[in-house]
Design a protein around this nucleic acid. Sequence first.
DNA 1: TATAAATATGAAACCAGTTTCACATAAGAA
DNA 2: TTCTTATGTGAAACTGGTTTCATATTTATA
Lengths: 330, 330
Amino acid sequence: MPNISDVAKHAGLSKATVSRVINNHPYISKEKRELVQQAMKELGYHPNPSARRLRGHLTSTIGVIVPRIVNPFFAYLVNAIEQAAYANEYQVLIFQSDESREKEISFLNLLKTKQVDGVIMTSIENDWHDIKPYSAYGPIVCCNEYVQDPLVPTVKLNQTEGAYAGVKHLIERGHKKIGYSTGALFAGEGRDKDRNDGYQKALKEADLDLNPSWIFVNKHTIDDGKQIIRQMMNMNDRPTALFSGSDEIAAGAMSEAKAHGIRIPEDLAILGFDDQPIAELLDPPLTTIRQPIDDLGEKSVEQLLRFFKDKSAQSECVDLPFELIVRKST
Amino acid sequence: MPNISDVAKHAGLSKATVSRVINNHPYISKEKRELVQQAMKELGYHPNPSARRLRGHLTSTIGVIVPRIVNPFFAYLVNAIEQAAYANEYQVLIFQSDESREKEISFLNLLKTKQVDGVIMTSIENDWHDIKPYSAYGPIVCCNEYVQDPLVPTVKLNQTEGAYAGVKHLIERGHKKIGYSTGALFAGEGRDKDRNDGYQKALKEADLDLNPSWIFVNKHTIDDGKQIIRQMMNMNDRPTALFSGSDEIAAGAMSEAKAHGIRIPEDLAILGFDDQPIAELLDPPLTTIRQPIDDLGEKSVEQLLRFFKDKSAQSECVDLPFELIVRKST
DNA sequence: TATAAATATGAAACCAGTTTCACATAAGAA
DNA sequence: TTCTTATGTGAAACTGGTTTCATATTTATA
């Protein structure tokens, strides 16, 4: 592998001039620039990223923290981020936090050690208070999550509206007993809180009571969905509709419900969240709330790039619209 | 951020000694070692990876090339690899080749520039002939793919056996007209060829003819699965069973088939491949061939680590067993 | 026409580590 | 007791880039 000195020698110029050509510095004569480019091509030269990182601050790598890559929602989000990053000649370092606070922090340390230029967090495990200090070492963008801090660049969906529209749809279908599954019930801030707000708002508007035993907390997976149905089977007064926090939960619930002879949507309407590819493959196809995942990824990368270009850029909070996809499960 | 000189000063020793402690060199007195460790702890010191990379060759990063991360099979594979890597204190750099030859090569260049210590390829787009030269810069492990070169460390499933068992299962269920979807029909080597072999072997054993119009080539996605059914609808002589190359194709096919009033498995049996989580959620639940994804990932990382430890380690070819999961779709 | 500003280049310092070389000391062998 | 050999440490060179500083040459302005 040739290095910058080889190129300099080959072109009959100094390392400094070669470096300037590589970095598009001003004040270089066209003549020398072409000489250098010629030499680079002839030697098949590629700058060594480690060396660049060591001196400058450019790593051309962004970190993405996801809870679990096997969750299709995050797989699609990572995909969108990767595409956008690649188009801008950035690499993506992907981390699974596994919903562990320690892992999350260990990944954020990459900012400190200049392994990544910036981080996109698609989930937040620690208190923001503990994460914030890391943003001194590089920009951190919240994507699909957010915190109560106007200084944090954020790209998110209006969760309140989404949940509101979903529940309202169920109410319009005539349901009065609406079950609800959520990540955290008494979340002080963030996505879950907003969804909870939307759920409550829709109920209130329709003068419906909120039955606490119809609220299922800390549900995330397919198995959790099945479990919800099993819980419901033990109730005397069962909900007639279930607003689940994700398509995965909905899929699990649908599967288990059918196993118990419950007809969907006649006996139980099920509403998902995400619009994953499986949604339309389920039987009956799942009514769900589509999140604009590609936009989410693109905008997040965009935000990050803005900060790379201008250290003191203004923080933005991008709010993306959602869409209710009505299929046969409601 | 403290650097190695700060630590050296704090401990009253030289940079060299500190470096030796970090790298577990022999010939260091217990006394000084503890002094250094104390100093590192007190200062909260973490070595700068870029600097280490620059001189030595350690990047503590492995690259993984997948065709598409949104394909759940690869999401699970990446997950397994990541977990195994994390346990060994390695980071994972994930790349989507998007089935593009150029992208694949551009990622392999990271080996050249010492950005990754080694690469796990879960798909191969270019001819091996063009990839091989890169292995001079670091080990390349084939995972779930393979090439005709005994010098390449490989972890794979016995695809021939898998396909054979699947088709045989369909034959035992009484099917004589078995449709088959594959990636490439005339593949000279690799996964698709082996599966094709297994398909043919099972047919031959049962004295069944191979009807070329029942073979569907270059199918991968949910939509491809739907398309297969549409093609079948136009046939006078239709297969009574479909052996699809993935659960995704199977899911698409099942959905479209039901839309046309075809009963499963009475009118058409459908067999998947992978055993993805959706398999058991479909209606009817999908009979499929389970790939031991976690083992696939773990073994691949293991192989890589072997080469990191011993540059001239012997290449191994690990063959993993599969499992037929019988559900209701056949 | 004198002076300031813009353009253009190279030498050397710098980033934060690792490794080589030189050298000192302690232990084991002749 | 002398000569190897093993053990332990530091100064300095090195990795491959970027950036500062010094300096030379143009070009623009007063």
